[in-house]
Nucleic acid binder design. Structure first.
Lengths: 221, 221, 221, 221
DNA sequence: CATGAATGAGGTTTCATTCAT
DNA sequence: TATGAATGAAACCTCATTCAT
């Protein structure tokens, strides 16, 4: 179990598997940092605390990460990529056309997939959400590398289904924002704000999809 | 302008106007703290920085607020109350029945009102969102004082309009969550995430209301 | 009771009654200071604490005593005088000759008298003992004003009773030190170190006197 | 000389010699702290002053002692043990019976031994005397760990020599208190109150012993 | 590569003292 | 005279970072 976790973490933190392996201590450092950053916030976490929880000497942290902020960036940067990975596939366009006949199907697929991702990565996502606004490096990375790519892809999808007649005729940005609000609203509530609730995910996903499609007004015969 | 700001801030920070006035220096301290907390986060802000920006001696801060955390709480607590004030009016039920014939009207009113509130209080709301997860005092206040009151009120409204036949038959909690996602999603994007955009608020509100009512599917004749 | 205390305190703190009266607030300040200095030590006591306990504003303390150390000196100086007052009476010599036929009588009188004094002034004496070593002003006052006067008087008494044949032939300084050790040892134990014990003072005084006279060896027929 | 001092200090501060060595800096910190605490009192001493005199960074103090009070306790605790060590030997009873035929011999041995100890440790003893009353941790340690052990031992000795007929029949506690007053009175005067005097220790010890045995009354043929 | 003692800048907080009211 | 808000120096302590081992 712990092994699996380590493998997964280490895979998460490298963008492609060609890159150099993390040492055992590095993994422990990252695990400890993620846990404490998520609990207390980056600024309120001391490197000595991380070292202690990781079971390494304080100096060891700085052998692997030049500064404390470096450590943060090493944690947040990969999650940003993974967060939007499904929308950045090179052959995304084809996938879409072949795989999702209806917008509903696409919505369902996205919600399921990103919910699973959210549940696996809740602490790191929490860190990301809290720290992006306070660190220009992260902000610019987010605004310049992540947002445009995703926006572009989603815009095409929306336009595709608008041309289709399946989606309402409205600025794609607005359509995206409203759809995203519902999806993100659920995932954050589910994974970060209220994870201790007992959730029936399939049901909630279905309702969200129906809501996005038809709103809150009862469907008339 | 500055005067107006001071008046408004001082009114915001007292729950009822009978309470004693804040001194001039106190207001400056709060203003400075709000600004820097919003910019860098509570933990990354030093009291000396606040003192400098407020134009007071560092000791003066601690004459008015026993600790730095006290200062944070003095800022965040009142905003939580004001944030949900419209839902906690004693005669809310009547207001609802008499004022909003349709759910749409209610949505529009809420969005306009809370958007205005968000634009006035963006920095404090940003602070609140960032710090609630890290401060048990704030968390418990939020979960115990704020959430239940609002949830109760909204639940009644939803049930009212469900009985009415205007709203879909679905667990009120879920209905609320989805509606709230759209509204909050817009307000946060508008006021905090992307305030520098040029927004056509009336148009966006109208679209959001329509989305909440009918979803993204084109309305059929 | 409180009134009596005030009167007594105010009388203690003036060397002669011709001097100006203390105001009501001054008395409260001194009372509070004595209490807290005795409990926590001079350095560890803050003027704000004193002000609070005295029920006056912080500024008021500094209206009456230029500095915190001034306040300490105003408390300790008079007690030093009073502590040795019995040995500094102008007509002490006569008193001695007429009043105490035997050294024993003198010992008993001194012990009773200074014990009573110690019980009345325990907190101030404690302050004096703790602070004299750390404040040159107090030290010099003690070494120059107090010690020589008392030493001189006691020396004469010892010499008087040595001439008498009642006291052993030994350097008067040494005789004094040993006698004083026993008396002071009892009074400090009784009043400051272990006041909560139940003590039978008359008995202990008698034993101490007998010890000073005859030591610990059983008296032989 | 300095080396010897260091060795001795480091031996004093460990209760048993198996425990880990103090670092060079730690010793310097303790030495500096002892010196300044003795001169100005604990509360009036700043950690920066200690650091400066010790020739280390202020932070270094806090790497070795979590708080300033920790540093005090690390200084005072061992001296309390050493102070009473001679009375807490496991085979003390035998030692007594075999070594000291008469009470006088015991007195002389104790006075010599503890005087030597007092001269070596004057500053630390001064600190101990001043700080015990103000620090509950020290107080309880003293009252619970130190006092009872010594009292018990001394009581037995007194009873032993009372049974012997060498000592007067009086409550052992009182006998002890009076004897101790004389011994402690001398040692404190000699080592702390008036060390700059030129003292003839052997003579004074002899006189004190004679005083304790026979009091101040001339011995009659 | 790993360690952890050492650093010194900077953090929050306290405090004696001043001064306008 | 009495007040208490304001001060700023200095208190204790933490921290990210370095470097000799």
């Amino acid at each position: 179990m712990a092994d699996e976790m380590e493998q997964w973490l280490s895979s998460l933190l490298r963008l492609n598997d060609e890159e150099e392996k993390m040492t055992d201590k590095q993994i422990k450092i990252i695990q400890a940092a993620v846990e404490i950053f998520a609990e207390k916030g980056y600024s309120a976490t001391s490197t000595s605390e991380i070292a202690q929880k990781a079971g390494v000497a304080e100096g060891t942290i700085f052998r692997h990460y030049k500064t404390k902020k470096d450590l943060l960036i090493s944690i947040v940067t990969p999650i940003m990529s993974k967060l939007v990975a499904p929308f950045v596939l090179r052959d995304f366009h084809k996938v879409l056309e072949s795989e999702y006949e209806h917008f509903e199907d696409f919505l369902r697929a996205v919600m399921r997939n990103r919910l699973e991702f959210g549940m696996k990565n809740a602490p790191i996502i929490k860190i990301m959400l809290h720290e992006i606004p306070f660190h220009p490096e992260l902000q610019s990375q987010f605004r310049e590398q992540i947002v445009p790519k995703v926006a572009q892809r989603l815009e095409r999808i929306v336009e595709h289904f608008q041309a289709n007649g399946e989606l309402i005729d409205m600025p794609p940005m607005t359509v995206m924002r409203m759809g995203a609000s519902v999806i993100i609203g659920y995932i954050l509530t589910r994974c970060i704000i209220n994870p201790e609730n007992s959730w029936n995910d399939e049901e909630e996903i279905e309702r969200a999809v129906q809501f996005i499609m038809h709103g809150l007004t009862p469907v008339r015969g």
